[in-house]
Design a protein around this nucleic acid. Structure first.
Length: 875
RNA sequence: GGGCGCGUAGCUCAGCGGGAGAGCAUCCGCCUUACAAGCGGAGGGUCGCAGGUUCGAACCCUGCCGCGCCCACCA
C-alpha cells in the first residue's frame, strides 16, 4: 500500500488528535499548492473580502481572531462553491501608534528624540523598524489558517496606495471637499498632534467646579468653571440674553483678575441660566463653545497654553503645566477673596487621547478638514436604498445616527509617519495641491505642508486602493465592489463609514461592499471587557498552542451571534478541542471499519432505515448550515454541526452501525458506503470553520487532494426521509427509556437482562429488535423467563426479567413522577380544549395538535397506571 | 443630556405568540473492542418586577427596577 505524504491511513491515526504538526504541515501545503490565489481573468463568479488591515505594530489578539475566523469561513465556503474568492490581506501603517513605538525605541537605544534625528532620518528609521519588527501578525495569521492571497498583500504606505491617497486628496481638494481652516480642534499635548472627534474618548473624571467673582461691588459677576487655568485667556463673560439677573450688566465690562484687562459681558443664547451662576467665562482659544461665542460677538482669541499644555501668558503662572496652573490660580484667586464656591470633586466628562489617554486640550489651530456633508449623505443613502445592507439590521440605526450628524473630519496630523499632505505653499502665500502626476513646484521659497494625513484617510480607500485604483486594473473590474465587509461594531464609524464615503466618491457612486457584517467584541467568561489591568486577557496564540487553531476558531465562531459580544473561556476552548478529537475518532472508526466514498451511493430502496435516517439528517443539516451561512449566523451554524456530528452521527449512527458492520454482508457494504458519505459531507461542511483537522481527515477518508478544493455540499431532497426519521425516533425513545430504567434500577452496565420485546404489527420497528437488544444489552428470554418490569414506548412493550435486581421503590417513584407529568399534560390540554374561545379562535392545526397531545397523555396515564398496579403486589 | 441594547438553569447564551432549550459546571453509574479530550443516566428555571393586549405571553404593548454600550460643546 502506498502512502502519499499528504494522507494517512487509519492505522496511522493516533487515538488523540494532535493539532500542532498537522496545522503547520497543512498550511504550508495549501500555500505551496496555490489554493489561496485568485485569477482576475477567471470566468468564475467573483467573491471578495478585504481584511481590516491590522496595524503594522500589531499582534494577533482575540478581536482579530474572531474577525479572521469569520472571514476565512466565508471565503473558504465560497471557494468550495466555485467562486473566484479573494481575501485581500495587508497592513495599516498606523500613524500615531507606529510613530510612538519607534520614538520609544530611539529614546531607549540612542537616548534621542525624533527631533534629534530630523524628519527624513526618522521616517527612514520607521521603515527600518517595519522591515525588522513590523508585521508580526502575519505569521500569526498563518497559524490561524487565514486563506488570504499572500501574493497580493498591501501596505497603506506602499507606492500604489500612496498614489491612491494623493489622487483622491487632489480630487477632493479640487471639488472643494477638502479645506484648511483655523478652528478649535482636539489636541493631544503628549502626541503633539490634532485628533479627529472619534479619536477622543470621553470619560468621567474627578474635576472641580469653582465659582469666581470677576469685578467688584454692583458690577461684579460670578462665573463657574472647571478650567480655572484658562481664565487668563478670557475675553468676555456671557449670560443668557433673557436672564434678568444680569440684564443691568450686559454691555458693561469687568476687570479680569491678574491681567488688568477689561472684558465685556455679552448676551448669548448658548448660556444655560439654570446652570451654575448662569454666567460663563468665555475663552475662545481654548474651548469650542467659547470659540463660537467669540465668533458671534467678534471677540479676540487669546492663546494662553502652548502645545504641551504649559501656560504661556506672562505673569506669575507662566511656565506652569495646565494641571499645576489650575490649583495655583485658584489659590491666588482665593487669596484675593474671589472664590465664592468650590465643588470638589466635580465629576464630569473629559476627553482623552485614544492613543495615549492624555487629557485632550481643545486648541485653536489651523488644520485640514474634509467637508463631509455631501459624502456622508451619499453614504447614508447607499444604505437607505438598500445598495448596502448591514447585518444585524439593528446596527443600521447607529450607522444613520452617525452619518446624519457628522462633523467635518479633521485629517491633518502633526506627525512624521504617514502620507504627507500634498499641498505646497509659495513664497507669495499661494497654495498648490500637487496631484500624483504633477511636478511639485520648485524654486525659492516653496515648501510642502509639514503635516501628514490621519491614518484612517488611507484606510478609507482600502477596498479599491488594494485592487489597484486609480489604475483601472483587472482586479478592480473583477472584485469591486467587494462582497462583504466583516468587522467589529466598534470601528463602524472609524472605518466603515469612511470607506463608504470615499468608495462612493472615488468609484462614481459604486459602493465599496454590498454587505457589512458586524460582529461583537470578545469578552471574558463573565462577559467583562478584557483588559491588562483586569488581568483577564486571553491570548489566542496561547489557545492555539494548547488546543489548536481549529479549536480556537470553533470556539469563536460558535460564540459569534450577530451583533452581540462573545464571552469566551478556556472551558469552551477545551470543549472545541474535544469536538475536533471527536471528529478525529469518528473518522478513525470509519476508516478502521472500511468506510468508503467509492462508487455511487445506493438508492434509498437498498438502504436500511438507519442508513436512510442518517442521510436524511445529513441533508437536513446541509440545508440548515447552508442557510445559516447565508444569514451570517455563525454561532447557529456551528451549533447545528456540533449536534449533528456528536449526537446524530457519533452517539447514534456509529453505535447503530456497529452490529451491522460486525455482521458483514450486503448491509455492511451499504453501511460502509453511507458512513463514508456522511463523514465526507460533514467534513466538507465543517471545513470553513475548522480547516485543518477537516483537511487531514477528509484526505485520509477520501484520498482526495484537499477538502479546500472539494465541492461545498448541496442538498439532495430525495434523501430527506420523514418516515425513516420517525422510525428511528421511536427506536431512540425505546433505547433511551430502557437505559433510563436500567440506570434508575442500578443495573450493572455489563449485565444482560433477559427481556421480551413485543412490537405492534406493521410499523417496521420490529426489524430493529437486534439493534435494540445490542444497544442496551438485553438478553433473550430463556426458560423460566418471568417478566418483573415492563415499559411501553410507542406501543412497543419491553418486558424485563429483573428478579433479584429490581428496586421496587425506585421504580414506583419513577412511574409516579411520570404519571404526575402526564396528568399535568392531560389537564393542560383538556383545559384548552374545554375553552370555547380557544376552539373558536385558535388555528385548526394548533387545535389538532393539542388533541393529539391529549390522546397521547391519556395513553401514557393508562400505561403508567397499569404498571403501578403491577408493582403493587411486590416489594 | 440623547440614543441603542440587555436582564431565561450555577456561568455564558439561544429561543421572540401555541409543549421552557444548548454548551460548560453539578450529581450518580461506567476503562461497553473510535474517542476517559470518552460513554450512559439524573437533578436544576413562578423566563427582572408590575400592569395591559390576546382564546393563549419568556415572546407583543406600557411603566418600574437593575445592568451594559455608543453618542454629546452645559461652563
Amino acid at each position: 500500500m502506498t502512502v502519499t505524504p499528504q494522507t494517512r491511513t487509519a492505522t496511522e491515526l493516533p487515538a488523540q488528535y494532535q493539532p500542532g504538526e498537522v496545522e503547520t504541515r497543512r498550511y504550508e501545503r495549501w500555500v505551496a499548492d496555490g489554493y489561496f490565489g485568485v485569477d482576475p481573468g477567471s470566468d468564475h463568479p467573483a467573491y471578495s473580502i478585504v481584511i481590516p488591515p491590522p496595524n503594522v505594530t500589531g499582534s494577533l489578539h482575540m478581536g482579530h481572531a474572531v474577525d479572521h475566523t469569520l472571514q476565512d469561513s466565508l471565503i473558504r465556503r465560497r471557494r468550495m462553491q466555485g467562486y473566484e474568492a479573494l481575501w485581500m490581506p495587508g497592513m495599516d501603517h498606523a500613524g500615531i501608534a507606529t510613530q510612538n513605538v519607534v520614538e520609544r525605541q530611539i529614546a531607549e537605544q540612542d537616548g534621542k528624540s525624533r527631533h534629534d534625528l530630523g524628519r527624513e532620518a526618522f521616517v527612514k528609521r520607521v521603515w527600518q523598524w517595519k522591515e525588522e519588527y513590523g508585521g508580526r501578525i502575519l505569521g500569526q495569521m498563518r497559524r490561524l489558517g487565514d486563506s488570504v492571497d499572500w501574493s497580493r498583500q498591501r501596505f497603506t504606505m506602499d507606492a500604489g496606495l500612496s498614489r491612491a491617497v494623493v489622487t483622491i486628496f487632489k480630487r477632493l481638494y479640487d471639488d472643494g471637499l477638502i479645506y484648511r481652516a483655523e478652528r478649535i480642534i482636539n489636541w493631544c499635548p503628549r502626541c503633539l498632534t490634532a485628533l479627529s472627534d472619534i479619536e477622543v474618548e470621553h470619560a468621567d473624571d474627578d474635576g472641580e467646579l469653582v465659582s469666581i467673582r470677576y469685578g467688584e461691588g454692583d458690577a461684579a459677576i460670578v462665573v463657574a468653571t472647571t478650567r480655572a487655568e484658562t481664565m487668563l485667556g478670557d475675553t468676555a463673560v456671557a449670560v443668557h440674553p433673557d436672564d434678568e439677573r444680569y440684564a443691568h450688566l450686559v454691555g458693561k465690562d469687568v476687570e479680569l483678575p491678574f491681567t488688568g484687562r477689561r472684558i465685556p459681558i455679552v448676551p448669548d443664547t448658548h448660556v444655560d441660566p439654570s446652570f451654575g451662576t448662569g454666567a460663563v467665562k468665555v475663552t475662545p482659544a481654548h474651548d469650542p463653545n467659547d470659540f463660537e461665542i467669540g465668533q458671534r460677538h467678534d471677540l479676540p482669541s487669546i492663546t494662553v497654553l502652548d502645545e504641551h499644555g504649559v501656560v504661556t501668558a506672562h505673569g506669575p503662572f507662566q511656565g506652569l503645566d495646565r494641571f499645576e496652573a489650575r490649583p495655583a490660580i485658584v489659590a491666588a484667586l482665593r487669596e484675593q477673596g474671589r472664590i465664592v464656591a468650590e465643588k470638589r470633586p466635580y465629576v464630569h466628562a473629559v476627553g482623552h487621547c485614544s492613543r495615549c489617554n492624555t487629557t485632550v486640550e481643545p486648541r485653536l489651530s489651523k488644520q485640514w478638514f474634509v467637508k463631509v456633508e455631501p459624502l456622508a449623505r451619499a453614504a447614508g443613502d447607499a444604505v437607505r436604498d438598500g445598495r448596502v445592507t448591514i447585518h444585524p439590521p439593528e446596527q443600521e440605526k447607529r450607522y444613520f445616527a452617525w452619518v446624519d450628524n457628522m462633523h467635518d473630519w479633521c485629517i491633518s496630523r502633526q506627525l512624521w509617519w504617514g502620507h504627507r499632505i500634498p499641498i505646497w505653499y509659495g513664497p507669495d502665500g499661494s497654495t498648490v495641491c500637487v496631484g500624483p502626476d504633477d511636478e511639485a513646484p520648485t524654486g525659492e521659497g516653496w515648501t510642502q505642508d509639514s503635516d501628514v494625513l490621519d491614518t484612517w484617510f488611507s484606510s478609507a480607500l482600502w477596498p479599491f486602493s488594494t485592487l489597484g485604483w486609480p489604475e483601472r486594473t483587472p482586479e478592480l473590474a473583477k472584485f469591486y465592489p467587494t462582497s462583504v465587509l466583516v468587522t467589529g461594531y466598534d470601528i463602524l464609524f472609524f472605518w466603515v463609514v469612511r470607506m463608504m464615503m470615499f468608495g462612493l466618491y472615488a468609484m462614481d457612486g459604486v459602493q465599496p461592499f454590498q454587505q457589512v457584517v458586524l460582529h461583537g467584541l470578545v469578552r471574558d467568561q463573565f462577559g467583562k471587557k478584557m483588559s491588562k489591568s483586569r488581568g483577564n486577557v486571553v491570548d489566542p496564540l496561547d489557545w492555539m498552542d494548547r488546543f489548536g487553531a481549529d479549536a480556537t476558531r470553533f470556539t469563536l465562531a460558535r460564540g459569534a451571534n450577530p451583533g452581540s459580544d462573545l464571552a469566551v473561556s478556556e472551558e469552551w476552548a477545551q470543549g472545541s478541542r474535544n469536538f475536533c478529537n471527536k471528529l478525529w475518532n469518528a473518522t478513525r472508526f470509519a476508516l478502521l471499519n472500511g468506510a468508503t466514498v467509492a462508487g455511487p451511493l445506493p438508492p434509498a430502496g437498498e438502504l436500511s432505515a438507519v442508513d436512510r435516517w442518517v442521510l436524511s439528517r445529513l441533508h437536513r443539516t446541509v440545508a440548515d448550515v447552508d442557510r445559516l451561512f447565508e444569514e451570517y449566523e455563525f454561532a447557529k451554524a456551528c451549533d447545528t454541526l456540533y449536534h449533528f456530528a456528536w449526537d446524530d452521527v457519533c452517539d447514534w449512527y456509529l453505535e447503530l452501525s456497529k452490529p451491522v458492520l460486525t455482521a458483514g454482508g450486503a448491509a455492511a457494504d451499504a453501511s460502509r458506503r453511507v458512513l463514508g458519505e456522511v463523514l465526507d459531507v460533514l467534513l466538507r461542511l465543517l471545513h470553513p470553520v475548522i480547516p485543518f483537522v477537516t483537511d487531514e481527515l477528509w484526505t485520509a477518508l477520501t484520498g482526495g487532494e484537499s477538502v479546500m478544493v472539494a465541492a461545498w455540499p448541496t442538498v439532495d431532497n430525495t434523501r430527506l426521509d420523514a418516515a425513516a426519521e420517525a422510525e428511528i425516533a421511536v427506536l431512540q425513545r425505546i433505547v433511551t427509556e430502557v437505559r433510563r430504567f436500567r440506570s434508575d434500577q442500578g443495573l450493572k452496565p455489563g449485565q444482560r437482562v433477559a427481556t421480551r420485546l413485543a412490537f405492534p404489527t406493521g410499523t417496521g420497528i420490529e426489524g430493529h429488535e437486534p439493534l435494540i437488544r445490542s444497544l442496551v444489552r438485553l438478553g433473550e428470554p430463556a426458560d423460566g423467563f418471568e417478566p418483573t418490569a415492563s415499559l411501553t414506548v410507542a406501543d412497543v412493550e419491553v418486558a424485563l426479567d429483573t428478579r433479584g435486581s429490581i428496586d421496587v421503590a425506585a421504580e414506583r417513584a419513577r412511574l409516579e413522577k411520570d404519571l404526575a407529568a402526564a396528568s399535568k399534560e392531560r389537564a393542560g390540554c383538556a383545559a384548552k380544549l374545554g375553552n370555547e374561545a380557544f376552539l373558536a379562535k385558535a388555528p385548526e392545526q394548533v387545535v389538532a395538535k393539542i388533541r393529539g397531545r391529549l390522546a397521547a397523555a391519556e395513553g401514557e396515564i393508562a400505561r403508567l397506571t397499569d404498571a403501578l398496579a403491577g408493582l403493587a403486589g411486590r416489594g
